[in-house]
Design a protein around this nucleic acid. Sequence first.
DNA 1: GGGCTGCTTGACGCGAACGTAAGCGGGACG
DNA 2: CGTCCCGCTTACGTTCGCGTCAAGCAGCCC
Lengths: 133, 133
Amino acid sequence: MPNDDLMTIREMCDAFDVTPRTLRFYEARELIFPERRGQHRLYDRRDRARLILILRGKRFGFSLEQMRQLLEIYEPGGCNRTQIAATLSVGRERLADMERQYAELREAIDELKQHIADAEQRLATAQDDTKTG
Amino acid sequence: MPNDDLMTIREMCDAFDVTPRTLRFYEARELIFPERRGQHRLYDRRDRARLILILRGKRFGFSLEQMRQLLEIYEPGGCNRTQIAATLSVGRERLADMERQYAELREAIDELKQHIADAEQRLATAQDDTKTG
DNA sequence: GGGCTGCTTGACGCGAACGTAAGCGGGACG
DNA sequence: CGTCCCGCTTACGTTCGCGTCAAGCAGCCC
């Protein structure tokens, strides 16, 4: 049962707001593995799932290489202990990164909110330079 | 009352685990503004506070330019309405980014945890390739 | 004065993550 | 049949965030 829901590179680009160059680049870096129908690439559900994870990882500041390593944990992939263990290790590190970042982000948000509130105060009491130039 | 707690570039590098090149680069991009004593740079509390924010922002995946804009909100800086309003606008956008990222990060963490648990299961039931090569 | 150390200003280099342009092949359409 | 329009590959260009010399000055010690 092959995944019928195959998409061309253009459909992928429209769906995920990326360029063909980006998809080919990710493929060259071995983050996604579209099939080939003749010369053309065809992307299935698995490729899309991986792309979503890649793009999300990027927003968190992870590199493509970090995501490539991490993606292995989202696949059945290797079936021997050493390989699974290695993947697990990478996954746990990445998880720790993300939890640190989560906590830090909470602090940063609260601080920024405070400074925004302060700025709103300043705005309210500031002289109106459009009148009192 | 000048801030007496001034630090040399080397002290800064040791304190924040960055290189002189990095500090000079941030200065060139107008993210920090150390004083000059003769030829030498001297960094005060304000510079250190900004540096902390810059480094934290980097970990969240923000660019130096984004941080430069955002840093204005952490300073009294401009005192006319239009300038404060502009800074506020940037700050609110950044805040929205961070809150989106915060929520997304929560999801990503939960997903990753699940996949790690799955991998642990596989590890437990996998054949031991060191014996059954 | 000679040498060392620390900081300075260029200027060039580099890896990551693409952008962009050139040129080829293959359906589709009038 | 010509000519679009895709998509493909190859290859060079670009931006960001620094790294890495290179050369020069300033202070200090002997």
